[in-house]
């Protein structure tokens, strides 16, 4: 037990600081992806409800593809595909040389696309809960379509969407562990390194699981606060 504690400690020979740094990378990646994915998801949801058949078709294709592909495959396609794309682009502009695409950026793009596909379903469901009369009332008050959306629809939308988005966030948090396969030193990668150095796989993988659990539990609390805030204008029951 003493050995285990010293392995996880923050002192010399302990991996505590490394794991904490990895946790920070995991959190940063997830937090950087969140706004990208959620905003893109809202755009896809609005497209899915638009009058233009072309926009609707594009939204369907987008959600089918990114909900259907394994997250690992999406990540590798973005990572390697992006690399090839940029290399060709640079070659056409006369730059010859090796280019490495940033793993963090590839993660934000790949997980952002997946999150957008899943959160768009949540947004569509939330948009359906808003009665037509709300839009009509907005236009009767002389609000533009954008102002109606921002002042009337969106606050009600958040209330309906929060539980679903909270699920999306938890999935995202766990999915970010896949970034370790393209050598970004997140919590999972840091754990792998610790296991390689100490030959204590049980201790470290268990520790990683517990850290992920703590992150989930922490975000659960944060979402409770957010939901209470979104519901503050509503009577309970």
């Amino acid at each position: 037990m003493q050995d285990v504690l010293s392995l996880l400690s923050f002192s010399d020979g302990g991996w505590g600081a490394a794991l904490a740094a990895g946790t920070l990378v995991t959190l940063t990646l997830a937090l950087a992806t969140l706004p990208v994915g959620i905003f893109l998801g809202l755009v896809v949801a609005l497209m899915a409800r638009s009058r233009s058949p072309r926009a609707r078709a594009a939204a369907t294709v987008f959600t089918t593809v990114f909900r259907g592909l394994p997250e690992l495959l999406t990540l590798l396609i973005v990572y390697y595909g992006g690399q090839i794309l940029i290399q060709r682009l640079m070659a056409s502009m006369g730059y010859e040389g090796q280019l490495q695409i940033n793993a963090f950026l590839a993660g934000v793009v790949a997980f952002g696309l997946v999150l957008a596909a899943f959160s768009s379903e949540v947004w569509v469901g939330a948009l359906n809960t808003i009665a037509r009369g709300q839009y009509e009332a907005g236009s009767a008050l002389g609000l533009s379509r954008w102002l109606t959306f921002r002042l009337v629809v969106f606050p009600q939308l958040m209330r309906a969407a929060l539980p679903g988005l909270s699920n999306n966030w938890l999935t995202l948090l766990k999915d970010t562990s896949l970034i370790s396969t393209i050598s970004l030193v997140d919590l999972m990668r840091q754990t792998n390194l610790a296991v390689g150095a100490t030959k204590q796989p049980i201790v470290f993988y268990l520790a990683a699981c517990v850290i992920y659990l703590l992150l989930s539990a922490g975000s659960g609390l944060a979402f409770t606060v957010l939901e209470r805030r979104a519901n503050r204008g509503h009577a309970r029951g």
């Binding site: 938890l170 766990k174 999915d175 562990s177 896949l178 370790s180 999972m188 754990t191 792998n192 296991v195 030959k199 796989p201 049980i202 993988y205 268990l206 990683a208 699981c209 517990v210 992920y212 659990l213 989930s216 539990a217």
Partner: peptide, 23 residues
């Protein structure tokens, strides 16, 4: 249920394969 839903499948797989496999 909380453990298996709250941590990444990747970590669980490594825990089983490398962790339990080390014993």
């Amino acid at each position: 249920i909380y453990f298996f839903r709250g941590s990444p499948l990747l970590a669980q797989l490594f825990l089983l394969y490398y962790g339990l496999g080390s014993l």
